Amino acid sequence: MATTITEQLAVQTLKLNDSSSDLAFFEPFSLPSTNQRILTAPHPEDTVIPLALRPATAEQPTLDAAISTVKSLQTQHDGYLTKKLATHGALLFRNLPIHSADDFSRFAHAFGYSPHEIIGIVVDRPLLAPNVAPANEAPKEVLIYNHNESPQVPHAPEYIFFYSHKAPAKGSGGETPISSSLELFNRANREIPEFIDQLATKGVLSQVTYKVDKQYEGGSTLRQAFGKEIVEGDDLETRKRKIEDQIKRYGRGKHTSWKWEDSDQTLVVTHHLPAIRTQQSTNLPTLFTGLAAYYNNSQANNTGKRKNVTQVLFGDGTPIPEKYLIHLVKITDDIRVLHHWEQGDILVFDNVIAQHGRQPWTGDQKDRVVLASLFDAESVPGNYGYGDWAQVVQALS
Rank of each mutant, 00 (worst) to 15 (best):
E7W: 14
A10I: 12
V11S: 15
L14Y: 02
D18L: 07
S19P: 02
S20L: 14
F25Q: 11
E27H: 02
F29T: 13
H43R: 02
H43Y: 02
P44V: 06
V48H: 02
A65R: 07
I67Y: 04
L73A: 12
T75E: 14
G79V: 08
Y80G: 00
K84P: 02
N95V: 00
S105C: 09
S105I: 07
H109D: 05
G112T: 05
P115T: 06
P126K: 08
P126G: 05
A129W: 03
V132E: 04
N136T: 13
A138E: 13
L143P: 01
E149I: 03
V153M: 05
P154W: 01
I160S: 09
H165A: 15
A167L: 10
A169V: 05
G171Q: 09
S172V: 12
G174Q: 03
E175C: 10
T176E: 07
S179I: 03
E183S: 12
N189P: 04
R190K: 12
R190V: 12
T201C: 09
T201N: 14
Q207F: 03
Y216W: 10
T221P: 08
T221L: 10
G227C: 06
G227Q: 07
E229Q: 13
D234R: 02
G251T: 10
K254Q: 13
H255Y: 15
T256S: 08
K259D: 10
T270F: 03
L273V: 10
P274Q: 11
A275C: 08
T278I: 09
G290D: 12
A293C: 13
Y294P: 00
Y294E: 07
Y295R: 01
A300H: 06
T303K: 11
K307H: 08
N308R: 05
Q311T: 15
P319W: 01
I326V: 11
D334G: 07
I335W: 01
I335V: 09
V337T: 07
V337E: 02
V337G: 02
H339L: 06
I346M: 12
L347M: 11
V348L: 11
F349R: 03
D350L: 03
V352C: 07
S379M: 11
P381H: 03
Y384N: 09
Y386G: 13
V392M: 06
